[in-house]
Nucleic acid binder design. Structure first.
Lengths: 209, 209
DNA sequence: CGAAAGATTGACTGAGTTCAACTGAAGTGG
DNA sequence: CCACTTCAGTTGAACTCAGTCAATCTTTCG
């Protein structure tokens, strides 16, 4: 995939920009070169559920391509970044040529499926409290370099995105985050959340509570 | 996959029998020839979340094989049925030989991923009421022949399985099912649930409520 | 027929949603 | 440089869905 990306020109996408919309027909898929992209579903009440957050070297928008159906999710940039556009025809050729690629994609997709199944199980059986702790840990552990190769000890997520990720109302996410600030596990100034005590988060991410 | 199955001997598995356990190392995967298999995760409190229900021609247990990790789910027979065992080595050979197979699996897995993502979104934003209606519809629409080619208008699921499927306590599932009996959308004697008015179910499966 | 498993109902409780008001930081234009 | 809009984040209070516990009732099956 990296080879494909490098051969192609990548395009700049701005923070907040929509890459593709739920319900729109799939014309191409995208390989993330830099920046993060949130993929979310929208229900009839306009509520969002973040399905995954893609980062560098992740492929997005390909599901709809395989299934020959409209996109089931909307992809929106969480920060400025470059995406490499891969046309449907290009991808088809690649798959036919390199059989290893299909296996690699199968592996990735399977991993993503297991992750989603795990989240599904957690969603009903764990409290929002433990889900928040868990989500913060994941975001923290997968936080990328900030552009100049420095790895910061904070993450950048809005309260709403945090809520959409763990599946609660924004107010709940805020209240639970306040608890974490209370016990000095994290600190926050705006959407800049600093993880101070990952061990405390890990403790809270276990059920019950 | 059907070709593979037919070439192999299938083994009888009894209702309630465990095919493989969460946490156990993957030795082989299975192709369902007849009967249905529930795949579920177990959390620390011993609660189950049914991740999917596999039927004839579905492949199960392959995730752990690709990922070279222990099974993330437990597979248990919902009724008597035959499964065809496919050894790891056999599968590897097949994948190398037939590149189309990898694509087919990729497609299936992607579809399953999208389904699971949809359920994840529903779980937090839709009421248990609508989830139950939705689950009943799915079960009803995908109910198979009953052995003699007859397609019955009822489904056979225990209350507990229904609850584990939609992610509620059994009592909640029962109470909501009672509502559906009340409005004559379904009737039930034991775990034999007859769908009378699919239209009413469809209506209730829409949010809100 | 009787035990064991599965289904049902009631009472109580609490986590999380909703609504609504308020604060604070960040622009923007006069 | 300051009033003015705007948007993200906070907080309080009322409400409600769904979980838990516990006591039956029913169906299934040996």
């Amino acid at each position: 995939l990296k080879q494909v990306s490098s051969g192609k020109t990548s395009t700049l996408y701005r923070k907040g920009q929509i890459v593709f919309h739920e319900g729109s027909p799939p014309l191409a898929c995208f390989c993330v070169y830099s920046g993060r992209v949130k993929l979310y579903r929208t229900d009839l009440d306009g509520k969002h559920q973040i399905v995954s957050i893609a980062g560098p070297s992740d492929l997005i928008g390909h599901h709809a391509l395989w299934l020959q159906k409209p996109h089931a999710v909307t992809a929106q940039m969480l920060e400025d970044g470059y995406l490499c556009v891969i046309e449907r025809s290009t991808l088809t050729q690649l798959l036919e040529r390199d059989s290893g690629l299909a296996l690699e994609l199968l592996k990735r997709t399977t991993q993503e499926l297991e992750d989603t199944q795990a989240r599904l199980a957690d969603r009903s059986h764990r409290s929002a409290r433990s889900r928040l702790a868990c989500a913060l840990l994941r975001l923290w552990e997968s936080r990328g370099a900030d552009g100049k190769g420095r790895t910061p000890d904070h993450i950048l997520v809005s309260r709403q995105d945090l809520a959409d990720l763990i599946g609660t109302a924004q107010e709940t996410a805020i209240r639970l985050l306040a608890e974490l600030k209370e016990i000095k596990a994290v600190s926050a100034r705006g959407s800049r959340i600093t993880v101070i005590r990952p061990d405390l988060l890990r403790e809270r991410s276990e059920p019950p509570y």
